[in-house]
Design a protein around this nucleic acid. Sequence first.
DNA 1: CTGAAAGCGCTTACAG
DNA 2: CTGAAAGCGCTTACAG
Lengths: 331, 331
Amino acid sequence: MSNIREVAHAAGVSVATVSRALTSPEKVSEESLKKVHDAIQAVGYRPNLLARNFRAAKSFAVVVLVPDITNPFFSQVIQAIEDRAQQKGYAVLLGDTRETSKREQEYVNRVETRLADGVIQLRPQSMSASTQNIPWVNACGCEGTPGPSIRVDNIAATKAIVDYLISLGHERVGIISGLKDNPHTIDRLQGYKESLAAAGLVFEKELVAEGDFTMWSGQNAAKQFFQLTQMPSAICCMNDEMALGAIQTLKARGLRVPEDISVTGFDDINYAKYWDPALTTMAQPAEEIGKLAMDLLLRIIEGEDLSKTQMVLPTEFVIRRSTCPPPHPRS
Amino acid sequence: MSNIREVAHAAGVSVATVSRALTSPEKVSEESLKKVHDAIQAVGYRPNLLARNFRAAKSFAVVVLVPDITNPFFSQVIQAIEDRAQQKGYAVLLGDTRETSKREQEYVNRVETRLADGVIQLRPQSMSASTQNIPWVNACGCEGTPGPSIRVDNIAATKAIVDYLISLGHERVGIISGLKDNPHTIDRLQGYKESLAAAGLVFEKELVAEGDFTMWSGQNAAKQFFQLTQMPSAICCMNDEMALGAIQTLKARGLRVPEDISVTGFDDINYAKYWDPALTTMAQPAEEIGKLAMDLLLRIIEGEDLSKTQMVLPTEFVIRRSTCPPPHPRS
DNA sequence: CTGAAAGCGCTTACAG
DNA sequence: CTGAAAGCGCTTACAG
């Protein structure tokens, strides 16, 4: 591996001139420039960016913390982040935390040890105290997340879904939630309750079934409703994957969706529109979230004080085939 | 940001001793060790790994090149790679190439400029000539890919699928392929042809519809079969996503799957078993592929000559609900 | 077991 | 415009 000294030697100039030719060519004479470029060709030189970064005390990398990269919503956000990072000359270090704080900490260490310049956390969790002063942005988070964040209004969005279901005539609306203590669960449950209250319907505990945002859990949660003396006529699921799982269960047990029971999702992953029936869901602007999160993080890395920046992006309700009025509307 | 010198000062020892205390404590006396650790606490020191890596001339990072991280099969493989990398102390740089060689080259540059130690390419393509001497492994590739690779026997696997369809009584088996020049397309098409030939059936060009491995393209490709004077009674799709898209089209046009027409996939992504009907498909060992690819790359980075290593992993045929005998078997 | 010193490959004031 | 030199934060022969 050749270095800058060999190039300098081959070109008959100093290493300083070679360095300048590479990073600020306007400071170098035409003549030197040519000699340097020729020498680079001759020697087959590639700059050692590890050395460059070390000297600049910057790694030009960011870590993105994601609970599960296999989730299509997250992978869409990540794709957008990566796209933006690449444009800006940054690398993205994949940090699949598998929901464990140990792994999360290992990745945070990477920035404390200068291997990354900041982190984007794709998860509705507040950052750990130890990370207070490292560049950090939370994306896909919730109400009340401290620090810079890009998110959606989960409460209002969920309320809008349930409002729609109620407007269709549903009076018994079940909900499949994430884990109880997940902030998304809390926010979206609140939206659900607000909608009920606004319609004068009472909140019934038996109408909420707990899942964990996976298809498998949606499938399971749906089964719980069959234990009830009266099934709900619609189920609002806190994400698409659980909705897809739930539909699977419902159909397997002989119910028609939506004729017998309506189902809604949240996210609008790619599969939603291909499903049978195509899923009515609340679309999140995944790409926009990723792009803005990256831009925000970069500005923070550059030193801007954006610690109070909270961006709330609009969602879009997409009505497809998985919802319709209940079988026997009372009205 | 404190450095090793401050720690040495605070501990009353030399920087060499601090360095040793950190990396080879057995060479340091108990007493010094304690002083150093106390000093580290006092100063709040975190080693600068960027400096460490620079000195070691290793980045402890690998780039994984993926055509589209949004594809659930790839994201599963990546998850396994990341898992393994993390265990071994390596970072994974995400390289979503969006199928463009320009972006691929930008990522390859990262290793030439020492920002990464090697690359895992998740794609059935041969490496570009310029990358001959950088640590490189191809995963999810094809027959004849030069250099180290981990893959599946695409020809045999596809032949097994079509054999099964034929054994069910199907004599007119359509196939939805990837882009014509994609190596996976070529290999899998060969498996298809071999199966036909073995059964004494003739290969008909009109029975192959071209897609590009996305659901959308599967949906489209399926439509082409409706133009035919006689529809196939089964469709073998070169991946799950196209199969899911195809099923969507088929059902939308009033056909029952599998009663009227059978459909098969390839990969066994998570969604396959939740689909309606659950998809019969050829499962690839995604995790195993990822894990082995990472291990292989690491050994190559360590200097082992594994340039001839080609691992072919077994697939597993998973029969679910999307296949059955044709409506009017001739036999 | 310990310390002084050299060096990894760059960049950048500082003089000229 | 150019070069000699210092320095980024570490590690590691080399002496002791």
